[in-house]
Amino acid sequence: MSAPDLNVNDLKALPARELRLELETLYAEYVACIDNDELERFPDFFTENCLYKIQPRSNYERGLPLATWRSESRGMLKDRVVAIRQLSTWGPRRLRHVVSCIRIRGWDGDALRCEANYALFETLPEQLTRVFQVGRYLDRIEVDAGRLRFAEKLCVFDSELIPNTLVYPI
């Protein structure tokens, strides 16, 4: 993880190569949290007033606002984690994210706009691993309480079809 006392000016001053390393570390930690099933830590990757959405590409491109998953705060993400752990009924699965092609799009005030491709593989018991989803992260990243966090994370997935259920965050 980045140094706990990171501030936005330090980040803006970083050479491009080092900034990229910071972002690669952030994405690696983020997907490890999901893939290692440590969801209790998941909301901490976001700012308090974050916006997190998972949307099929068709809705996104047509400007339709519906998201498959829509959380408008860290609190809503916490509620999702409670639901996954205690409220919902679902069968066991293993997830594995592969993130690549990080594109730094530039600064928007104190927020860094950033994109990345993801491929998400799902393994159900007694089944071969399958591609669950591929898509793009469209992110706004901020320095918040000394570390990088997502102020906005939009996961836009290519296939409109979801194989049965989307239980975990992307």
Binding site: L66, A67, T68, S71, S88, N164, T165, L166
Partner: peptide, 16 residues
């Protein structure tokens, strides 16, 4: 809409 659909708080149960 978070209640419904493939990631719905309620509908996940049904699909599974």
């Amino acid at each position: 809409a978070n209640l419904m659909g493939p990631a719905g708080f309620v509908s996940i149960d049904d699909s599974e």
